[in-house]
Amino acid sequence: MKRVILSVVLMGSSMTASAVAPGGPDCGWGNMVFEGQGGTGTHFVAMTTNGTSGNKTFGMTSGTNGCSTSGKLSYGGDAMVNLSGVLDEFIADSARGEGEALTAVAVSMGIAPADRAIFADAVHNNFDTIFAHADVTAKDVMLSLVEVMKSNPELAKYVS
């Protein structure tokens, strides 16, 4: 049955925007930082299958699995990038001001290569603002990030 349901999603390629939450339900916008991966399958399961159980998508969505691109949260009129899939990696890179997750977020926000170092510095310097406490969610982080970018002369153009 799962396959059939997924088929519907895949075939219906023009996603109908979900009114439930930005990015749709189960999208992870409510994910807190350091969510961890509790309860994930064991090595033994992977042994004969190499399967990704029950989490099949075909790249029809942007950001992470199961997220619609047409949520209400947006910057500059564009649909908002979904951070929830790389939140843990992003926070660690942000602390140091460098790393692949930081680049990935910059790219997905459409930041030109020339401005990425500025973006990295802005995130690095405003770490305490963006990650204000240990229970911030992906949505909180995104909103703070947009604020930080708005107040930066070079980055404001990406979120105005």
Partner: peptide, 12 residues
């Protein structure tokens, strides 16, 4: 989560 953020803040 607090401990992890604490370490990252120190690194930052």
């Amino acid at each position: 989560a607090k401990r992890r953020l604490g370490l990252l803040k120190a690194i930052n």
